[in-house]
Nucleic acid binder design. Structure first.
Lengths: 163, 163
DNA sequence: ACCTTATTTGAAACCAGATGCTATAACTCA
DNA sequence: TGAGTTATAGCATCTGGTTTCAAATAAGGT
């Protein structure tokens, strides 16, 4: 008993794979939707809806609708790192969980397996099946923990995304 | 080595104590500010700025400024449970960390000590000093984990705050 | 009491995200 | 391939949450 079944562990090798999954669910595939999907397949790090809209020249509203819809169908989910907009990422392929430093706003993506021991312990203690995909683990990184007091910074952006 | 020093573990027995701490830092104490503090001392659960403003009949802008300021000075912090407004709570006195169920939106406050083993493990593995005071631990509660798939619900409010 | 400076207020700006509407584009079936 | 059906894109507009601005007020020091 190391890890519970990764709920809805959909995984798509490529766009067509994902597209088929959508089609199988009776969903249409508009140009815009395909573009969003393609972009998500390209990006490694989570991206904001705004970013998607900008880079693709699509209306943000449409982007939000698409992302939300893809999320409902389990292809995508969003994470909140610090404050600022939610960031979207494909599930399954290259999925990560995140460590976020309160102080320097550094984001450290982790392979989910690395947190399995934590999950096990939480399951054992509280019966909870936790994921750090929606909210990151928040605290002080090694460097910041060493220094002075932990004045909560949150620079509202400039996530120095150190991957 | 069970727990790292609780960073900035300020703790105030009563309002006057907190007020003195503020005065000592050269801050004024307006009626509004005192009222906000008093309300926070009364509340057990985290409250929204809106709630504070409503119950006290103070402008939300002032409430936000006060809360933000009290937060800067380490008397208060805020937590995000699901989506919806940030919720503010006094630091130190009766401080909790939170478990949040993705599915049924149940919030379970925990005594921080109960998560110390988790903290220890995360410190050992990643050098991170984590707290679950800003973002809760998110996952499926025992009940929901048993059932079907984990359709992310987030009823956008109605936190059935079971304390 | 007086002066200086922080703080309150109310309005307005702001951002992330959601929603209603109409034209259009996807899929269905003939 | 073309017509019909229905989802989706675009755009404008709204909302909730939070911040900012200018002017009026009130704290604390002297």
């Amino acid at each position: 008993m190391t890890t519970a079944p990764q709920v809805a562990a959909l995984s798509f090798d490529d766009i067509d794979d994902a597209v088929n999954a959508l089609r199988a669910r009776g969903l249409r595939l508009s140009i815009a939707r395909r573009m969003v999907l393609e972009l998500l397949f390209k990006e490694i790090d989570p991206v904001s809806a705004e970013h998607v809209a900008q880079t693709l020249g699509i209306d943000v509203a449409s982007v939000y609708r698409n992302l939300e819809m893809l999320e409902r169908h389990g292809l995508v989910h969003h994470v909140h790192l610090g404050h600022g907009p939610g960031l979207y990422v494909l599930v399954g392929r290259g999925e990560h969980e995140y460590l976020y430093c309160d102080r320097c706003a550094t984001v450290t993506p982790l392979e989910p397996e690395r947190l399995d021991p934590i999950r096990d312990q939480l399951r054992a203690s509280f019966g909870y099946e936790v994921r750090f995909t929606h909210f990151p683990l928040v605290g002080l990184c090694r460097d910041c923990a060493g220094e002075d007091r932990p004045a909560a910074v949150d620079p509202h952006s400039s996530h120095s995304h150190g991957h």
